[in-house]
Amino acid sequence: MTALLEAGGLAKVFPGRPDPVEILRDISFAVAPEEFVSIVGPSGCGKTTLLMCLAGLLPPSSGWVRFRGQPVTDPPRGVSVVFQDYSRSLLPWKSARENVTLGMRRLGLGRAAARDRAEALLAEVGLAGFEGHFPWQLSGGMQQRVAIARALAAESALLLLDEPLAAVDAQTRADLQDLLRGLARKFRQACLLVTHDVDEAVYMADRVLVLSRRPTRILREVPLALGAERDQIDTRERPDYLAARHEILTLIRAARPEGAGA
């Protein structure tokens, strides 16, 4: 199967004082259509930088990114991002509905069609009845649902998820994990989830990439076969789930910088 997204020899160095800061060193991997890949790594290993490079929002210092075989220099059509900080990624002067239609801008839909689709998507993420609410009138979990609906609105083949659930409470987090996985399957989208939460990475994914500490490389690729249907209780008790979790946690503990907190 041909890859949807490919990265080769990706590196990112930021100019800094007194020395340049090398964040990424030699990242190569591919994501197949409809595949769910998680990327985990120790804190501060440049996960967000990697995602920005993949999305075409940040030029890499060297190496390349291709989406559907085309080199990525600007954000390509067919890729959407759900940002970590929903309180900053939603436009506070626009309603939930208008924030979602923003995601459809590149589809060239008419006003009425865009509005109908936005309302359908908001219903899909469980926000029917909140279309006219502004972001600051919604709870954190609800705001992130709006951001998810906006990412879905672009009808993208690939969703890049930058720790999308890091700032919500545990119960909301579990709900949104299942929602995200369900919708990605329903709309036949590939997902690349960047997270520091090993449990979440394993629970959601078909494959996990484990990153080293900075300068960051891929330490190991952990394939999973947890099945298409996941369950918050049963999946997390499967022996292969626990084995993968153990393997990844061990790698990350070893990769943590000296003196980092427990």
């Binding site: 929002l57 940002f83 900053r88």
Partner: peptide, 10 residues
């Protein structure tokens, strides 16, 4: 982040 959102919207 808002600038990134705008760029993703084209």
């Amino acid at each position: 982040v808002l600038l990134s959102v705008g760029r993703m919207a084209g």
